[in-house]
Computed example of a mutant assay.
Amino acid sequence: MNKLKADGHYLVIWTCRAGDQLTEAINWLQEKGIPFNRINDNHPESVAKYGGNARKVYADLYIDDKQVGGLPPWRDIYEMLGHEEK
């Protein structure tokens, strides 16, 4: 995710956590140095474009740990996006 952020991607964490569990998740992400731009919230440009802040966060690409087949290694995800290793 650090490489994706460095490449200029806008990263949104979408989680079902709320309240104390959400706070714990945010703290964990920050402690681990995992970058993100927003959590459970749409990019302001998307809100303006579509006239509201929908519950489901809009994205060009979703990376989900519960996807069919499981989560591939991050190196593979990065390569799938067409980025070259630096």
Rank of each mutant, 00 (worst) to 15 (best):
M1S: 10
I34T: 11
W28Q: 11
I39F: 07
K66E: 14
G82L: 03
G70V: 12
G8N: 11
E84D: 08
G82I: 05
L11A: 02
T23W: 05
N2P: 09
V47G: 02
I13M: 10
R75T: 04
K5Q: 10
D60F: 11
E79M: 13
K56Y: 07
V12N: 13
L11S: 00
G8H: 10
V68T: 14
D65C: 08
E79H: 11
E85G: 04
G8M: 11
D76C: 04
N2L: 13
Y78A: 00
A25Y: 10
G8P: 04
E24P: 03
D65L: 07
P72E: 09
R38T: 14
A48Q: 09
I63S: 01
P73T: 13
S46L: 12
N2Q: 15
N42T: 04
N27M: 09
R38A: 15
Y78C: 00
L61H: 07
M1V: 12
N53E: 10
D65T: 04
A48L: 11
I63N: 01
H9E: 12
I77A: 02
N37Q: 07
N27D: 14
I77L: 06
N2M: 10
I39Q: 05
L71I: 02
E79D: 11
G8V: 12
T23Q: 15
A48Y: 01
D20G: 03
I26G: 03
I34S: 07
G8R: 09
R17S: 12
K32Y: 08
A48T: 05
W28I: 08
K86H: 11
I63R: 00
K86V: 11
V12L: 07
G19Y: 02
E31V: 07
G52N: 07
P72V: 09
Y58V: 10
W74N: 08
A6D: 12
E79R: 15
K5R: 13
G51K: 09
L22E: 14
A25G: 04
I63M: 02
W74A: 12
Q21Y: 07
W74H: 06
P44F: 01
H9R: 09
K86T: 14
P35Y: 03
W14A: 14
V68G: 05
L4S: 05
G51Y: 07
L71K: 03
R17T: 08
W28V: 09
E84I: 08
L61C: 11
I63C: 02
T15D: 00
L29I: 00
R75I: 04
T23S: 14
I39V: 15
A6N: 13
D60S: 10
L61R: 14
D7R: 15
T23I: 07
Q30T: 11
A25K: 08
T15Y: 00
L61D: 11
L71G: 00
K5G: 04
Y58M: 12
T23K: 15
D65S: 12
A18F: 11
E79K: 12
H83W: 01
V68I: 13
D60I: 01
E79C: 05
K86N: 11
R17Y: 06
A18K: 14
T15V: 05
L4V: 04
M80G: 05
G51M: 05
A54F: 06
